[in-house]
Measured scan of single mutants.
Amino acid sequence: ELSWTAEAEKMLGKVPFFVRKKVRKNTDNYAREIGEPVVTADVFRKAKEHLG
Rank of each mutant, 00 (worst) to 15 (best):
N26M: 15
D42T: 07
V43A: 03
Y30D: 00
V38K: 07
V39F: 00
H50Y: 12
E7T: 06
G35K: 06
E36I: 07
D28I: 07
G35N: 08
A6H: 09
E49T: 10
G35H: 06
E1V: 11
K25I: 14
K25E: 15
K25H: 11
A31G: 03
A41M: 07
D28C: 05
A6K: 12
L12F: 04
E33N: 08
Y30M: 03
W4F: 00
R32K: 11
E49G: 08
N29G: 08
K10Q: 13
S3R: 11
L2N: 04
K10V: 10
G13A: 15
L12D: 00
E36A: 15
W4A: 00
V38R: 07
V23K: 02
R20G: 02
N26L: 15
E9F: 08
V15E: 12
H50T: 08
I34A: 08
K46S: 08
N29Q: 13
K22C: 15
T27G: 02
A47V: 05
T40M: 01
R32W: 06
T5D: 07
G52I: 13
F18Q: 11
V19T: 09
R32H: 06
A41I: 08
T5A: 04
A8K: 00
R45A: 10
L51K: 09
R45P: 02
R20M: 05
A8V: 02
R45S: 08
V43T: 06
S3C: 12
A6V: 12
V19H: 15
R45C: 08
M11D: 04
A31L: 02
G13R: 14
L12Y: 03
V23F: 09
E33T: 10
D42W: 06
K25L: 14
E36V: 11
K48C: 14
T27I: 15
E9K: 12
K46Q: 12
F44P: 01
P16W: 07
K48D: 06
E7M: 06
K21C: 14
R32E: 04
T5R: 02
P16M: 04
K22T: 12
T27D: 00
K14M: 11
I34W: 09
K21W: 14
Y30P: 00
W4M: 01
T27M: 08
V43F: 05
A31E: 01
K22Y: 13
N29I: 10
V38D: 03
D28F: 02
L12P: 00
F18W: 15
D42C: 07
I34Q: 10
P37M: 13
L51Y: 15
P16N: 06
K14E: 14
N29K: 11
F44I: 04
V19P: 03
D42L: 06
L2S: 05
N26H: 15
A8D: 00
E33Q: 11
